[in-house]
Design a protein around this nucleic acid. Structure first.
Length: 264
DNA sequence: AACCCCTTCAACCGCATCATG
DNA sequence: TCATGATGCGGTTGAAGGGGT
């Protein structure tokens, strides 16, 4: 038996919010803030659980929510960021001011994914070569670039590296194939130990819409690894606190490889 | 008009992670 | 270091609405 749903307590409302509930929530947050979502419903008089209140506020009632259809530029941004970050909707939303992770997720599943699937046509040879070369890739991190002609073949998003990566580790990658590879995932226990000087921190201002801290590959790193360009390397799956406290994040990086050079 | 099917999207659920004592 | 509660996140659900027959 699983854990009881948070809203299963007797007397709490579920489902769509009424205008009156919205008014109460907005009024309360304007006057008192939302330091404690758990306590908010009781203090405001709402018959909702704290989780429901938080979702309603962050996804709908926040004053800085941008309404209306997505522009071409926003859609392109989502597509590019999804290539880079995968289904990390909150990370994508952080780069699109006024848009929520829930909304972006919906747009992705209802519009953008369909559009991309139509464009992702790759050869059977490429699929089989990738499948062979990336044996052992984490299933949960795989993406199925379905092709109507061979729907049973699954293309991995992330290829694990050997403990000591060298140019030969990438020998199976050709220019043609890289059009269909948006990221290479480096397994935490196989990434080589590298010196911190390989990376440089970029401070980005809040009003640019980007997080205040992210990390860029330096030229030294690019020279060591065979990528034409690596846009951003982000700490993956760790909070800034952990990053500050530990150097372990070097072992778990998501690399955006935009155009991998063909290895002779 | 009635029914069915499909799409959309707000909301929920459960797990992961973080914060705190 | 561990336990516990709070919060964040991504996957999923289901009601509502629109279009086709």
């Amino acid at each position: 038996m699983g854990r009881a749903p948070c809203c299963q307590k007797m007397g709490l409302n579920k489902g769509p919010w009424t205008p009156e509930e919205d008014r109460i929530l907005v009024s309360y947050i304007q006057n008192h803030g939302h330091d404690n979502w758990r306590a908010l419903p009781k203090q405001s008089g709402l018959l909702r659980c704290g989780k429901s209140c938080r979702l309603r506020w962050t996804n709908y009632l926040r004053p800085d929510i941008k309404r209306g259809n997505y522009s071409k530029e926003e859609e392109e941004t989502i597509i590019n960021l999804h290539e880079m970050l995968g289904n990390r909707w909150s990370a994508i939303a952080a780069r699109l001011p006024g848009r929520t992770d829930n909304e972006i997720k919906n747009v992705w599943h209802t519009h953008l994914k369909k559009r991309l699937n139509q464009n992702n046509v790759i050869t059977q040879d490429t699929r089989q070569q990738l499948k062979h070369k990336t044996n052992g890739t984490r299933q949960s991190e795989s993406t199925n670039l379905s092709n109507p002609t061979c729907p049973e073949v699954e293309i991995p998003r992330h290829a694990p590296l050997s403990p000591q990566p060298s140019l030969s580790d990438f020998s199976w990658v050709t220019n043609e194939e890289t059009k269909n590879i948006d990221a290479i995932y480096v397994e935490s226990d196989t990434f080589p130990e590298i010196d911190q000087s390989f990376l440089s921190e970029s401070q980005v201002t809040e009003d640019s819409g980007m997080p205040s801290d992210f990390w860029e590959i330096t030229e030294d790193f690019q020279q060591q690894y065979p990528f034409n360009s690596i846009d951003i390397v982000e700490p993956y799956g760790y909070s800034q606190n952990i990053i500050d406290d530990s150097m372990e994040f070097w072992y778990d990086l998501l690399i955006r490889a935009d155009g991998i050079q063909e290895i002779p």
